[in-house]
Computed example of a mutant assay.
Amino acid sequence: MYLKRKRTENFIHYNWEIVGPGWIAHDMANALIQEDVGVYGVASGHYSSTKKFFEEFSIKHVYENYQAMFKDGNIDIVYNATPHNSHYEIMKDALLHNKHVFSEKAIIINSDELEECVEIAKERHLVISNGVTLFHMPLFKELKKVISSNCLGPVKMVQVNFGSFKEYNVNNRFFNPNLAGGALLDIGVYAVSFARYFMKTKPDIVLTTMIPFEKGVDESSGILLQNKEMEIVIISLTMRA
């Protein structure tokens, strides 16, 4: 893994850049500051919001656009908190400028774009990571240990029901196909990750259905997964209940 920052006693310090200073980026900035890592710089597509963010957190480096940010050789890791539809472009550009990328979900909106970025990362010895919180929650780690011990027997079925109600608003990004809206890309990432976490191997059978919102995105989705061990997953998602 290509990392190049200074070492202070037993702690290696990396310079983090935040892209997309929205509400989730505020949580990330607070976490980095709390862990005494800090935020090296911030950039977005709208300089006014960027300026407000760097003033709030006393960030030393602010960039007028992503391109200017990526040219800064002092940046090690790019935290991408922009809407889903821009993840691919930002991630690819960051990787081509030798930056590691930590991305909010959904990491990218289709597998072809993700595989391209993974290949670039491998070639340049860089790291791509996705911020799916449940992988780091003590509860799920303990459940994993219990299931792995086989004291309850083998996994036969995983059922996930996830509803995250969004108020009716055709202009909201959650319902905008151009901004990669819909239940699958918003909450489905968590549901599929949860199910996959408890499956022995990846599924080789995938069946889906959905109910469209008037703008065309999936307001509700049903997903059926099955792997070679005959483990079955049933997932129900909705943004309207």
Rank of each mutant, 00 (worst) to 15 (best):
A43E: 00
F57Q: 03
F198A: 01
D36W: 06
V132S: 01
M1N: 09
K202A: 13
F194C: 12
L224M: 12
K105D: 03
V160C: 09
I211W: 10
R173T: 07
Y40P: 00
A180I: 01
M69P: 01
P177H: 05
A94Y: 00
E119R: 05
L225W: 06
T238E: 08
Y88F: 12
F174R: 04
V127W: 02
M1H: 11
D27F: 14
E64N: 13
H26L: 11
G20E: 13
D204H: 13
N171S: 08
K202N: 11
V78P: 03
P138I: 02
D93A: 13
Y2H: 15
V78H: 00
E9Y: 12
R196E: 12
E56A: 13
L152Y: 09
F53D: 06
R240Y: 00
N169T: 04
L152W: 11
E115H: 14
I232T: 15
N169C: 04
V158R: 00
S111V: 08
V155P: 03
T209G: 09
E35M: 15
R196D: 12
E167T: 08
M69F: 08
K141H: 02
Y47E: 09
E64T: 10
G45M: 10
L134V: 05
V170S: 13
Y79E: 14
H136D: 05
H136A: 07
P138A: 02
Q159G: 02
L237D: 00
E214T: 09
V158I: 05
H97M: 06
E116I: 03
M230S: 15
D186K: 05
S149Y: 02
T50R: 04
I59C: 05
I205S: 03
V118W: 02
K60I: 14
V101K: 00
F174L: 01
V155G: 01
V155L: 04
